[in-house]
Design a protein around this nucleic acid. Structure first.
Length: 98
DNA sequence: CTAATGACATTTG
DNA sequence: ACAAATGCCATTA
């Protein structure tokens, strides 16, 4: 319960034009449950409230998304994040650290 | 309470 | 470098 809320709160804190990884979120929560983080975002009852599309995998790939990763790619590009071959360009540069 | 699952990550083949 | 297997944590059935 609390865990998911924490995940969503952190996800909400991600500034526009930046991205983060499930691992980073888990680390911010002082845990290694990147799996659970993915699960939390998957449920994501605060769909428009939480920009889950800014959360990507550790290698910069978008990972899986509920409404098609293609749409998320477009959203990220709108926010200024360039996507290259299903991966974030300048990933380390755009990566948001908590 | 036990078992299965997933929007992951890391190590092997 | 790519594909498959294994490990992880919290949630859900």
């Amino acid at each position: 319960m609390n865990f998911n809320e924490q995940v969503w709160e952190l996800t909400k804190k991600i500034p526009k034009g930046k991205v983060t990884t499930y691992r980073e979120i888990a680390r911010a929560l002082h845990t290694k449950a990147y799996r659970a983080v993915g699960n939390a975002l998957n449920k994501n009852p605060y769909a428009p409230n939480v920009p889950c599309h800014r959360v990507v995998k550790s290698d910069g790939s978008l990972g899986g998304f509920a409404s098609g990763c293609e749409h998320k790619i477009k959203l990220l590009q709108e926010e200024g994040v360039e996507i290259k071959d299903n991966k974030v360009a300048d990933f380390e540069n755009k990566l948001y650290k908590f």
